[in-house]
Write a protein that binds this DNA or RNA. Structure first.
Length: 172
DNA sequence: CCCTGATTCGC
DNA sequence: GCGAATCAGG
């Protein structure tokens, strides 16, 4: 008894396929199946030919991919960074009234001033820039993006998803 | 700082 | 075939 080395049995592969097609991430699947790492899951996915869950008709950038194992010391090319998400309505920061008032009641949970903003903090504006209680979200931002996961979803809503969600989000 | 999948290559 | 290490990117 006790299967010592549970390889990719039929059942495990089936579970893998089901979870993957269900939209679960590799790490989640790995945790679900157990005994395997996220890399193992991804590797198996590829060997099964299930990779590329979301195919882009445009044949967009391969997104990811290790270099051909050579020229490790290639000069860093400066990426143009064309991404300009344009925050909801933050374009009018008046120079006046930037003084922090003391009698302002604001939740201390993840809400920071511009001085407290760090690179990995969410820059989602909260409140009116002209009022003293103007703060930023301050939650942990996605690396490379100015917003946290929650606000990134709001800022970068895909056209397909935007159609369904017609709720006005507004800042808070 | 966290995460995602993609690829390579020794085993 | 397997998956850790590494890579690119959000």
């Amino acid at each position: 008894m006790m299967e010592a080395g549970p390889g990719w049995t039929k059942e495990r592969v089936e579970l893998l396929k089901r979870l993957w097609s269900d939209g679960r991430s590799a790490s989640q699947i790995a945790a679900e199946i157990g005994g395997v790492s996220r890399n193992a899951v991804i590797g198996k996915i590829h060997r099964l030919g299930l990779a590329g869950r979301v195919l882009k008709a445009n044949g967009a950038a391969p997104a990811g991919g290790r270099r051909p194992r050579a020229e490790t010391d290639a000069p860093l090319a400066e990426t143009p960074s064309v991404l300009a998400p344009a925050p909801p309505a933050l374009a009018l920061i008046k120079p006046h009234a930037a003084t922090p008032s003391a009698s302002v009641a604001l939740p201390e949970s993840a809400r920071v001033t511009i001085m407290e903003l760090r690179e990995f903090m969410c820059r989602w504006p909260m409140g009116d820039p002209s009022t003293p209680d103007f703060r930023f979200c301050g939650d942990r931002a996605i690396s490379g993006l100015p917003y946290c996961t929650h606000h990134s979803r709001i800022a970068y809503q895909p056209a397909a998803e935007r159609k369904r969600d017609r709720k006005v989000v507004g800042f808070r």
